[in-house]
Write a protein that binds this DNA or RNA. Structure first.
Length: 481
RNA sequence: CGGGGCGUAGCGUAGUUUGGCUAGCGCGCCUGCUUUGGGAGCAGGAGGUCGGAGGUUCAAAUCCUCUCGCCCCGACCA
């Protein structure tokens, strides 16, 4: 496939077939590949590099808010999952079972964790006995398994990587505070590090986590106009504390149940990055999480090959101190080929250096988001690279924010609502009466769901988009992944 | 899980309707030479049990049955 500019030849045009474009980008940029096991994917080194950067930056934010990492088992006794009624109902259809080891049937079947509330709850009940043991602030980086009927690379796979935070608190207020704090960690992480603007809000009863009192979320808008749930933070109340008997003696000598939270983001974020920032040329990675931030492409005609390579190596050596840089000195590919390849892979900055530059004492920087080329004197190298990395990070965010703003519609006319969902998609901010009947009907009639009730509630009175009764909230609707 | 489509070399495909000898082409790959500022050129070369299993037939990529996987559109979920 060749687009009008004649650059990218190996990926489907984004404008023609978004789904195929998405898959092509992942496979061609070598982020991931299909595995021999249905619904499972292999995350290749370049894709895993993105995940490693996500982990590092998020982990730093978790540590800064007082959390510590731990690891709980992959296998959970069947009986645990069954203890919380809503929880088991929510997850039962998609759990994988281990019923046999070698030739022996297990006395109690084990489930492969779809999430770890239950086994962590069990452990917490052993560890907590006094108000002095609280709060417990633990996170785990792990894989989980949910047997999915329809899978899509990164967005929904039967096994995926994520982090799940699980905390216990002395009071309801403290748990709510933690839930919102971690939601804000996600919000700031997505906006600052992934350059993805989000809506932060609360899920409706229907959309909330199985077993939670309240689920908060960050929702992002993909460039095809569909919303993606990018992260969730749950206030679990005392639901799990009661069934796993996580209790403590409080200051007033009363035995009380703890108040819990859990929160998570997954490798799905990588799908979000692709669909928010990617373009006709392929991936475009925010510098903060790009495995390679600067790719150095030497232009080396045989006569000056040694000279150019030596200067290029010096440049790499200088840049290694301030960013993630690599040298592409492969001789078997032409410079033009490399330009396209690294653009497809979304590297934020390309640094070109050839005989002409060396003569002039400069290098050429090309930014991925705009394609703009800049000559930079050799002595300003570090400053220019740092400035440009920041500028690309901001540029990607600004572009994504503009897209989200331009694709957020406000209406209380159901006819218009249907037309928007049908024709242009995007987010629709509309009044809602609060009833599940209307929520379900809207979904059945348009395919759109309530993505969230925004945090800073809109107090403007309105009439429900569906039934016309007085609204309780203005909410965001969208078709979602 | 329902409806539709597709599996032929690493990738993209022709051939399948109407069975027939050695399965053709492009890209990529290997070797050599020339090249190098937006996917370089020439020459030579390697690579296939046609997704898998069974069946029909003198003969199967092609027909039949079953099965696995992927994609698209819906229903369900991070």
């Amino acid at each position: 496939m060749e687009n009008s500019q004649g650059f990218v030849q190996h990926i489907t045009a984004k404008s023609e077939n978004y789904s195929q474009w998405y898959i092509d980008v992942i496979l061609r940029a070598e982020l991931a590949d299909y595995s021999p096991v249905r619904g499972c994917m292999v995350i290749r080194p370049y894709g895993f590099g993105i995940w490693e950067n996500i982990k590092e930056l998020l982990d730093r934010r978790f540590k800064a808010t007082g959390h510590k990492n731990a690891y709980f088992p992959l296998f959970i006794p069947e009986s645990f999952l069954a203890k919380e009624a809503e929880h088991v109902e929510g997850f039962a259809p998609e759990v994988a079972w281990v019923t046999r080891a070698g030739n022996e049937e297990l006395a109690e079947p084990l489930v492969v964790r779809p999430t770890s509330e239950t086994i962590i709850g069990h452990m917490y009940s052993k560890w907590i006995s006094s108000w002095r043991d609280l709060p417990v602030l633990i996170n785990q980086w792990a894989n989980v398994v949910r047997w999915e009927k329809t899978t899509r690379l990164f967005l929904r796979t039967s096994e995926f990587l994520w982090q799940e935070g699980h905390t216990c608190h002395r009071t309801q207020e403290e748990a709510e505070e933690e839930t919102l704090k971690m939601l804000d960690v996600y919000r700031s992480f997505l906006t600052e590090d992934l350059a993805i603007p989000v809506l932060a809000g609360k899920k409706t009863e229907r959309e909330k986590f199985a077993g939670a009192i309240t689920t908060y979320c960050v929702e992002a808008l993909m460039t095809d106009g569909r919303a993606l749930q990018a992260g969730t933070s749950h206030n679990l109340g005392q639901n799990f504390a009661k069934v796993f008997d996580i209790s403590f003696l409080d200051k007033d000598n009363q035995l009380k149940y703890v108040w819990q939270t859990s929160w998570g983001v997954s490798t799905r974020l990588i799908g979000g990055i692709i669909m928010v920032h990617g373009d006709e040329r392929g991936l475009a990675l925010p510098p903060r999480i790009a495995p390679i931030q600067v790719i150095v492409v030497p232009i080396m005609p045989p006569s000056s090959e040694e000279t150019v390579l030596n200067v290029a190596r010096d440049v790499v050596e200088r840049l290694e101190k301030i960013c993630r840089v690599e040298l592409d000195s492969r001789d078997e590919y032409s410079p033009g080929w490399k330009f396209n390849e690294w653009e497809l892979k979304g590297v934020p900055i390309r640094l070109e250096i050839g005989p002409r530059d060396i003569k002039a004492g400069k290098v050429v920087l090309v930014r991925r988001d705009t394609g703009e080329k800049t000559d930079v004197p050799m002595e300003n190298l570090e400053d220019a690279v740092i400035d440009m990395l920041n500028s690309v990070q901001e540029g990607l965010y600004a572009r994504a924010k503009r897209f989200m703003d331009e694709n957020t519609h406000v209406t209380n006319d159901y006819g218009k609502f249907k037309a928007i969902i049908e024709e242009e998609r995007g987010l629709i901010f509309a009044p809602w009466c609060g009833s599940q009947e209307c929520e379900v009907s809207v979904k059945a009639e348009t395919g759109a769901t309530i993505r969230c009730i925004p945090m800073n509630a809109c107090s403007k009175p309105g009439k429900c988009i569906h039934c016309g009764d007085d609204s309780t909230d203005w909410v965001y609707f969208a078709k979602a992944y």
